[in-house]
């Protein structure tokens, strides 16, 4: 890659940040060049973000339909999955799955709610709603 070929087309996922990449200068030497972003990176990052948003939105709809609890919604919203939430909260995966049942979640003890909230960086109040 020549330094004149370093992508400068912008990448919305960088939110205005610039990254530094190595490219070949006119003298043949590699040096650090700032890049405003490459569309290819934007496409693959957006793809991952959109997939997470899709799962979050899907969970929100199922919360409204009474098919799952706000816990699942928040798990997707903070980009976690069940194995990661289990590690972060110290609660077994099968218990988390059980807490996805709205009736079970509604009866959770303040202590358990606190552990979930702490693991996801939320307050207990936020955890119980899907705003």
């Amino acid at each position: 890659m020549l330094d004149s070929e370093v992508p400068q087309e912008g990448n919305s996922t960088l939110a205005g940040h610039k990254k530094a990449v190595y490219a070949r200068g006119g003298d043949g030497k590699m040096h650090l060049v700032q890049s405003a972003g490459w569309e290819v990176e934007e496409i693959v990052t957006r793809q991952a973000v959109d997939d997470l948003l899709r799962m979050t939105e899907d969970a929100r709809r199922r919360v409204e339909a009474g098919q799952t609890s706000a816990l699942e919604y928040h798990m997707h919203r903070v980009r976690m999955d069940i194995p990661l939430l289990a590690q972060a909260s110290g609660i077994w995966q099968w218990r988390i799955r059980r807490h996805f049942r709205p009736a079970v979640f509604a009866r959770l003890s303040p202590r358990l709610l606190g552990r979930y909230a702490e693991a996801m960086g939320l307050t207990v109040d936020q955890l119980q709603k899907t705003e």
Partner: peptide, 15 residues
Amino acid sequence: GQVVRMQEEIGTGGG
């Protein structure tokens, strides 16, 4: 997409 994310995303120096 994952293969490319790990290749090019934040902080790899490209390529």
